[in-house]
């Protein structure tokens, strides 16, 4: 009973600490945002500055680069705490492994992925995204990015004990991102062509919900395994 009472403030404290860390010096949030900005602005050099071409590929480019930005900030999600041993203490605390992964994912989403979604319209301007698509772009990122953090958390937890596990983590989780990417881009594409983005959005939300269940359980199992 008292464990449950204590676990909620602990959960919040963990989220707050991680958000603060992500934004402090050496944290990953600014890096992810910077990567998002720089990588998107490479595309006009790659495919040429023709506005129609840029507009056609804008939803895909913004989604893919946002996805990669989220991933590169994920690879140390559990690693710092694992290395200094505080993950062991947390596992013994009342919030348990599922609580830890939930807090970590929530903190990552708040500190890194949410700002990416908010920065996305600016990238839309760079990529000549048509006016009617901005709302859907932000909304699709808001609905879809939690799935990125959740699935990524599984990869980060599985590779937490692996030295230089970052690239391995990419190999593991990028294939699992396919549905989120398809439905996310599908929604923005639909809005761009003035058709109804709602079916895509519903499927995107369903993917995120499945990722919520599977991601938290699998992350917790992987963390338990790593600390055995």
């Amino acid at each position: 009973m008292s464990a449950e009472v204590k676990s909620i403030p602990m959960f919040m404290a963990l989220v707050r600490r991680d958000v603060k860390l992500a934004w402090s010096q050496g944290g990953g949030a600014m890096l992810a945002l910077g990567f998002f900005f720089v990588a998107v602005s490479l595309f006009p050099f790659g495919v040429g500055p023709a506005p129609q071409v840029l507009a056609r590929i804008a939803p895909g480019v913004i989604w893919v680069v946002a996805l990669l930005a989220a991933v590169i900030s994920l690879d140390r999600l559990y690693q710092a705490d694992y290395e200094d041993g505080s993950l062991d203490d947390l596992m013994l605390s009342p919030i348990g492994p599922i609580g830890i992964s939930a807090a970590k994912v929530l903190a990552h989403w708040l500190s890194t992925t949410l700002p990416l979604a908010l920065l996305a319209p600016a990238m839309g301007v760079l990529m000549n995204l048509p006016d009617q698509a901005y709302g859907t772009l932000i909304l699709s990122l808001l609905v879809g990015t939690p799935a990125l953090s959740l699935i990524g958390s599984v990869g980060a937890a599985l590779t937490v004990a692996v030295r230089r596990g970052g690239v391995l983590m990419l190999l593991l989780i990028l294939p699992l991102y396919v549905p989120t990417l398809i439905f996310g881009v599908g929604a923005v594409d639909a809005a761009m062509s003035l058709t109804d983005p709602l079916p895509h959005m519903a499927l995107l939300a369903a993917t995120t919900l499945i990722a919520l269940v599977v991601g938290l359980f699998a992350s917790a199992a992987a963390l338990k395994l790593a600390l055995e």
Binding site: V154, L176, T207, A222
Partner: peptide, 19 residues
Amino acid sequence: AASILALVGVVNIPIIKFS
């Protein structure tokens, strides 16, 4: 660890197929 990944993949295969 690999087993956990294989099971996550099982959940994902129908979703990926469908998407």
